[in-house]
Structure formats: structure tokens, C-alpha cells
């Protein structure tokens, strides 16, 4: 488990996320799943950004905004420590 996560988390193949510490569940869209899996494999923000530009047809500004928004949401939900 990547150290960024506050407790054990499981993301299923179809985007269903379970937080083992709180018991809460979430559904992630394709982009969310992509970012989350990068986080789980220990990638940092900069590396994830580069991979997003490779994977999706998106300009850097939009990718940056999506990534920041997603991190903010994960932080607010208590899933990660920023």
C-alpha cells in the first residue's frame, strides 16, 4: 500500500473503491481510476500528470486542474494525507 493512503483501500476493476478503515465506498470514473491506480503504485503528482497527458487527449492545463481537484476530494474524504 502506498504511504499516501490513511488506511488500506481496495479499488476493483470496475472502479468500486472500498476504504477498509472507515467502511465507506465510492465509485470512480475512468480518469479517477487511472489516477488512483498510479497513486497506489507509488507515483508522485508530476509523474501522474505526465502519464495523464500520454493516456488522455487533454491539454496540460485541464489535466492539472483535474488532478488537483481529485487530490483535493481524496483529501477531504480522508483517504489521503496531502
Amino acid at each position: 500500500m502506498s504511504e499516501i493512503f490513511k488506511s488500506e483501500v481496495t479499488l476493483s476493476e470496475n472502479g468500486f473503491l472500498f476504504d477498509h478503515g472507515s467502511g465507506l465506498t465510492y465509485t470512480l470514473n475512468t480518469t479517477g481510476q487511472f489516477i488512483f491506480r498510479q497513486l497506489q503504485s507509488g507515483q508522485k503528482s508530476k509523474q501522474i500528470m505526465e502519464k495523464m497527458l500520454d493516456e488522455f487527449e487533454v491539454i496540460e492545463e485541464t489535466a492539472r486542474k483535474d488532478l488537483d481537484d481529485f487530490f483535493r476530494q481524496l483529501n477531504e474524504l480522508g483517504l489521503i494525507d496531502l
Partner: peptide, 21 residues
């Protein structure tokens, strides 16, 4: 350890999930 995921109007657990906490 569990989190109750569904309660009755009396506050009794009708669904729950086990945790690692």
C-alpha cells in the same frame, strides 16, 4: 470492528461491513 451501513428507525444495524482499523 464494523461500520453500520444501514440503520432502522430505532437505530439498529440492518447492514454493516467489517473493517481493518
Amino acid at each position: 470492528p464494523i461500520r453500520k451501513t444501514r440503520l432502522t428507525d430505532k437505530g439498529k444495524a440492518w447492514a454493516a461491513v467489517t473493517l481493518k482499523n
